[in-house]
Every structure is written in structure tokens, then in C-alpha cells.
Design a binder for these strands. Structure first.
Lengths: 329, 329
DNA sequence: TTTTGTTGTGGGAACGTTCCCATAATTGAT
DNA sequence: ATCAATTATGGGAACGTTCCCACAACAAAA
């Protein structure tokens, strides 16, 4: 069932039907009515391939996530999907392995499908991938969702993780904590680097010695938080507070402390980052730094669609974070 | 850059280039070599729209998930993505709201993009949607991933949740538990219905009275497990064991018990369902029923691709579950 | 009356592939 | 030497849209 058949059934030419479908050009009210009715009756759906061949638009967006098991990304996607869906877009989701070997391939796979735009998440900053994204963004909008892109010639939205972590660290210091441990990403995982900087700065300003043994590098898995807490608490002088670069890792640490019967917050305070939905339900509820996820995600997808439909100019935006104090500190 | 340009550069006709791209028909080794080299040099990528218009294939799969925040679906997707990606497919992911209002629309959105197949997850059994899926599967393969489709004229893969839950309930009874509570889905959420049946059957066989106040209906969110435990434990005769239709809800219940200082498993045993990766890290590690997720997911995507590429005949497969005893019971 | 602008319609080229068909060269069997 | 099968190539129609162009009807302005 194609545009010709509809035209025949409605007693008009295919041009008129085309005008109805693509909603531009003049069509008489009666013709419009009749054509819509026929299309509905036969359940006509325009062929995307033919349409795409002429317009070079697919109404598809490609999204790269490093790990969907992390609820952080799932929460992002819920917001993105809702908005993109309401504007007629559908999203391809690719999972790139943590060490980024698949990213280049997946980006090519997406481009081969003529996606209209790309939303890029990564745990790392890989210069080869970055160069590719920069090249691509000349013709296909790309939005990166992390602060590590600051300074790059790319569109991004992010939160000021440095400032947020700085504030939270100061808060812990002011509550009397003196041995504050930090769970960050490994060297390869640059995504939380600015958060770690905020921690270091606050410690320095308070004249608290920076202790290498109070820093643990993980891969942003819940298990890494678990392992980190184990590493910290077995030391001769265990910390009286543990901060993590993400809630997901903080929950892992909390699990360890609970399993070991170490009381939170009496013996050790725990602070996360992200304010995931479930942090109100942990035992005890988690003190965390709120990353304005809904705003970020909304801005990311709306900016991308704006770039697709209007203006390809680079968009860069940084949001503030906010400390949320709960019972874990 | 199109097939004509490549042909010109390689000094052959577009037909020969087409044979190289679609890998069928005779091509001389030297021509092949030269064409591949030219395509690589100019970074040529065949136009999907033109290709699709002729072949009616998009190498895209549509997946409907009711909720990606639930790590259960994320774990499924990781397996699916890896396999589909290796076979040249990319996946559209749609999130359908729990009450299914968006499902019909999203299915249409997917069909409008000429996807090659659909993988369908849902919390509910909606006859309107089911009818649509049955109609669609005449021309576009559809695989459902839940046991509630058993008996329907549709392709599915699932685990025997009834049997798994029956075994786990019997195990609890044999360990001396006599008041076993169950967290299931609401009436609208039929997905765990067969699991609940297994629980009822085991209770009945052991002559344990079926107590309405020991059954809680939730929406499969972690918060529902939390709330359920609260509901159970405030009763005059609280249960000595809580089973949940999913690990996600069991973890919610565990969080409640931990927050309230109720000892697990001494006072209350907790048993989940799914064997999510993170259940080894809960406090205490969760006893659960292993749903063979990797096998299920592998089978689902491989069956779908088989149906797409070979034979559209219906495929139906049921796997066994296995009880995994950990410290929560 | 003529001109101008708006509204409405249809014809046909073009988008970049695939695939059928025609043709030719080469090989190997008769 | 002849024929058939295999290998290799190119030409052109077709897929289902969009969009440019031509043209007609009609209203309003000159």
C-alpha cells in the first residue's frame, strides 16, 4: 500500500497525498478530509526508506551508554525516551564496553543507519573517539553528557561535580570527620575526575593530609564500592567517612558496612553522588549530592533535537549540584 | 558519495559495486580488491534508505521494556545487545508505561520504521496489544519474554516460575518456616502470576492456611518491596519468611528489615526471584530463584534473528529455574 | 477588463540501491 | 571444433517518496 494507491482511492494525485503526509503545500479541506480517511481505513504507513532517501532524515537518535545496569543511565534514559518519543523520534541504544573498544564500531553502525543525532555517554575520554565525534558533529549533531568534555570543541551538558563534591567534603569536615576516604574511578575512568578534584581541594583547604591509602579506584560498579569499603576498613587507621564518586558505588560500600556490622553513621559516614531514586531506601538512607538529572537529561535531548531541526551550533551547559543530607552522615 | 562514484573510481559499473556490497553474484578477485580499497579510501557507507527500499530490511530490532530502572531488564538487554550487534542489528528501545497506554503507539512507531523484529516485555497481559502482536507476527517476527504468554499463539521464551517458586516455598517450609508471606504484582501486573501459583500450591500441599493478609500486591518497584515488608511486619502475627516475585522487590523488603533492625534470617527469611547480579552483595546475601537469564536472552534474540532470516514459524521455549540458597534464609 | 496573488492540483525527475536480463569471455567436456 | 557450464560484467527498471515546475481557478486590486 503506497502513496499511489491512496491517491487512487481518494481520487487525487500522489502529489496531493504527499502534501498531506509531509504537511506542506496547499490542500483543499475536502481533499484533506478524504485522504486522511482513506489512509486511516487502509492503515497506511508511509515507507520510511523512500521518505528517508529524499529527506535524509530518519527520526532516529543513537545513544551510547557504557553500562545500563547502572541505574544512573537508566534514569537518564527514561527522561530522554519520553521527550524524544513525544517529538517523533525513536532511539537506538548501544552498550559500549567499559574499555571503549566497541565505541568506534558502534558509532559507525549508527551512522550507517543515518541517525539524526547522537547522545554520548562514556566513562573515559578517548581521543580517537573524541576526534571522530568532532568530525561527525559537522553534519550530525552530537551531545556529550559529562563534565569531562569541558574545554572540548563539542556540545555537552553536565553538572559541576567539582563544586558539589567540594561542598559535601566541607560539610563532612565541619561535622567533625577527619579521616575521609574517597572512591573514585580508575585512571582509565576519567568521568569522575572533577568530583575527585573537589574532594582534594576541600581536604587541602582544611589542612587535612592527603592520604593515598584513603583513595580507592574502581570501575563504577556496585561491587567496586563494596571492595573499596573492605579495603578501607581493614586498614590500621580506618576512615570515619567514605565518599564515593557515584551513589551506585556508595551503595556497594554501604552493603559492605552493613554486612560487617559497622554502624553508619556512628562509626563511618557515607556520602554518595547522583541522588538516585533508590537512595532514600538504603539502610540508612544515603546522604548524597544531587545531580539535577531531570534538567540535564531534558536539556540534552531538547538541545539535540534543536540542533537537528534548526541550528547546528555548539551548545554547552553546566548545572549546579546540591547536597542532600540524610541519615548516613 | 554513492555507488556510482565508487564505480567510477574503481573503473567498473555500479552493478559490480552492488555485487560487492550485497555479497552476492560473481566478482573477479582483482575487481573486488580494487572496489574494497576505493570504498575504504573514501569511507563509503551504503545508503540505508536506498538499500531498505529495495530489500525491505532495516537490520533494526524494536524492544519494548516496561521499566529500565529495574536491573532485570538491563541485564537482559546487555545480553541481547551483544548478540544482535554481532549479527549486524541495532536495537530501538521503547519504554512503555506500566499501565500500557503507550504500547500501541510505540509498536506503531516501530513498524513505521520498518523494523525487522520485535522483542516484547510487559508487566501485563493486554488483549488489545496481544491481538496486535499476533497480527504483526504474520509479517514481522515477534518474541515475547514472559511466561504469561503460555497458551497464546505467539512466540515466547520464558522460565517456569511456578515450579521455581514452588520449590523455594517447599524449601522454606522444610526449614521450619510456617508463616510465609508473598509479594506479588497487582491485578494489572500479571507477569508474576505463575510464580504466585507455585507459592499457593506449595502452601496448600503443606496444609498451611492461605492467609490473605500475608499477600501484598505491588508494581514491581523496589519501593513496593519496602512497603510490603512494612505492611507485613506491623501485623499482629508477622511472618517468619517473606518471598517476593522479583529480587528487586525482595531487596526493597530487605532494606526495610535492615532499617528496622529486624534480623535476617533469624526473625524473617527473605527469598527473591531472578538471581540478579547484585543479590550476592545485599545484607545478608539473598536467597533467590535463579532464572536462567543468559540462556533466555540468548535464546530470545537468536530465535528472533532466525525467524527474521529464515523461517517465520512460531518458537516457544520454557526453561527451568533453580533455587540458590544464600544467607537470607 | 487586466493584472496580481492566493489556493489547489497533477506530472515527472530524482534520491541510491538491488536485481533481472543480456552479453561475453573462459573453461572443460564431448 | 562444438557445446554447455561457469565466471564476470554492464545496462536499465523498479522501489516509494519529495519537490520542483507548470498550470488552473478564483478572488481582490488596479
Amino acid at each position: 500500500m503506497n502513496i499511489h494507491d491512496i491517491a487512487k482511492l481518494a481520487g487525487v494525485s500522489k502529489s496531493t497525498v504527499s502534501r498531506v503526509i509531509s504537511k506542506n503545500g496547499y490542500v483543499a479541506p475536502e481533499s484533506l478530509q478524504r485522504i486522511l480517511q482513506v489512509m486511516d481505513e487502509v492503515n497506511y504507513r508511509p515507507n520510511v526508506f523512500a521518505k528517508g532517501m529524499r529527506t535524509n532524515r530518519s527520526y532516529s537518535i543513537g545513544i551510547l551508554f557504557p553500562d545500563l545496569s547502572n541505574p544512573f543511565f537508566a534514569e537518564w534514559y527514561h527522561v530522554i525516551e519520553q521527550i524524544s518519543g513525544s517529538k517523533g523520534y525513536l532511539n537506538y541504544i548501544c552498550i559500549t564496553d567499559p574499555y571503549g573498544k566497541t565505541e568506534m564500531k558502534r558509532i559507525d553502525d549508527l551512522l550507517a543507519r543515518s541517525i539524526d543525532g547522537i547522545i554520548y555517554f562514556s566513562y573515559q575520554k578517548n581521543s580517537e573517539v573524541l576526534d571522530k565525534l568532532k568530525t561527525i558533529s559537522k553534519h550530525t549533531p552530537v551531545i556529550c553528557c559529562d563534565g569531562m568534555m569541558i574545554g572540548e570543541d563539542l556540545s555537552y551538558v553536565c553538572a559541576d561535580g567539582r563544586k558539589g563534591t567540594y561542598d559535601a567534603t566541607r560539610y563532612l569536615i565541619e561535622s567533625g570527620r577527619i579521616r575521609i576516604a574517597y572512591i573514585k574511578g580508575t585512571e582509565a575512568y576519567q568521568v569522575g575526575l572533577n568530583r575527585f578534584e573537589g574532594y582534594k581541594q576541600a581536604m587541602e583547604e582544611a589542612n587535612l593530609p592527603f592520604d593515598e591509602s584513603l583513595v580507592f579506584s574502581g570501575d563504577f560498579k556496585m561491587a567496586d564500592g563494596f571492595e573499596a569499603a573492605n579495603y578501607f576498613m581493614r586498614q590500621e587507621y580506618p576512615p570515619d567517612a567514605i565518599m564515593a564518586a557515584t551513589d551506585f558505588m556508595a551503595i556497594g560500600a554501604l552493603n559492605y558496612l552493613n554486612q560487617q556490622g559497622i554502624s553508619v553513621p556512628e562509626q563511618v559516614a557515607v556520602v554518595g553522588f547522583d541522588n538516585l531514586t533508590r537512595t532514600t531506601e538504603t539502610n540508612p538512607p544515603l546522604t548524597t549530592i544531587e545531580l539535577p538529572l531531570e534538567q540535564l537529561a531534558t536539556n540534552a535531548i531538547e538541545s539535540l533535537i534543536y540542533q537537528i531541526e534548526n541550528d547546528k551550533a555548539i551548545i554547552q551547559k553546566v548545572y549546579d549540584c546540591k547536597l542532600i543530607v540524610r541519615q548516613s552522615s
